[in-house]
């Protein structure tokens, strides 16, 4: 299989800070990949660049045969790339199922006329939307909470809603930003199984940002490591684990900072 996403020489700075410097990565279609790196390495910024929330200063993003540079977030979503957020960003007062229904927006035929006149087409589409939302909620395992207000659910469930919402647009690729943050080991094992299921059953390519090495090493087929906005290493979990630059980035940083503190 070929690459579904090809990022070449991507650059983004905020004022003086170069958050992403000349990053190039390839994501194989149907793979599970991870992006790792210390805090502030530029991982989330990379996701924001991919999804059109930030505009890159330079570089190119080819996704599924088309360039995404300059596309708006909703266009990126429509093109087949969806995401979750590091700090959960649900629509807090909406119910669980409504959150997922919003996620389908780019796949719906929506006209004011249909909504006001309540055409047959409108009813059929709404029925389909509800049915599909339930299917996705079952898939992530929280369908029993479908009609609860999303902000009232525990943290782990909210992460699941975000995943279901991201899958609602039938994406080809999902970007999950620290999806297991704040989970206990048992929950993150469940989450890992869910990510595999997303790839195996739905055929969706998965890219994670992860800090939990057990998850990263356990699930990824390919890993890219960022540090100070630059890609310092990439390859299989084994390659990356044994790469001295990665050890240096993770461990070296820690020793210098502890030395500085002493």
């Amino acid at each position: 299989m070929g690459a579904i996403l090809t990022v070449t020489n991507l650059v983004k700075s905020f004022g003086g800070i170069a958050a992403v410097r000349d990053v190039s990565v390839n994501v194989e279609e149907g793979s599970i990949s991870s992006i790792i790196g210390p805090n502030g390495a530029g991982k989330t910024t990379l996701f924001n660049l991919l999804t059109g929330i930030y505009k890159p200063d330079s570089g190119s993003i080819m996704f599924n045969g088309q360039s995404l540079v300059g596309k708006r977030p909703d266009q990126v979503n429509k093109a087949g790339m969806s995401r979750t957020f590091q700090n959960i960003r649900l629509f807090p007062s909406m119910t669980v199922i409504e959150n997922v229904m919003v996620g389908m927006h780019s796949r719906l035929k929506i006209s004011l006329f249909d909504a006001i006149v309540r055409t047959k087409k409108f009813y059929e589409q709404e029925a389909h939307v509800v049915e599909k939302a339930h299917r996705l909620l079952k898939f992530v395992g929280i369908d029993e909470h479908a009609n609860e207000i999303s902000r009232n659910l525990p943290y782990g469930d909210q992460r699941r809603i975000e995943v279901a919402r991201a899958l609602a647009s039938d994406p080809k690729l999902v970007l999950l930003d620290e999806p297991t943050a704040g989970m206990n080991p048992q929950e993150s094992t469940e989450a890992m199984n869910l990510f595999r299921k997303i790839r195996d059953e739905l055929g969706v390519t998965v890219v994670l940002i992860e800090h939990d090495m057990r998850v990263v090493m356990g699930i990824s087929e390919y890993i890219a490591v960022l540090d100070y906005g630059q890609k310092i290493s990439e390859g299989t979990p084994n390659d990356v684990r044994n790469d001295p630059r990665v050890i240096e980035a993770y461990l070296g940083r820690r020793t210098t900072s502890t030395e500085a503190a002493q």
Binding site: I53, D74, N77, R89, F91, M94, E98, M101, V102, H105
Partner: peptide, 19 residues
């Protein structure tokens, strides 16, 4: 629903495909 989504979180709304 899209209006509510925009009202509650514009960034999330546009990332979820709401123009």
């Amino acid at each position: 629903r899209a209006w509510t989504a925009i009202r509650e979180d514009e960034v999330a709304a546009k990332a979820m495909g709401v123009p």
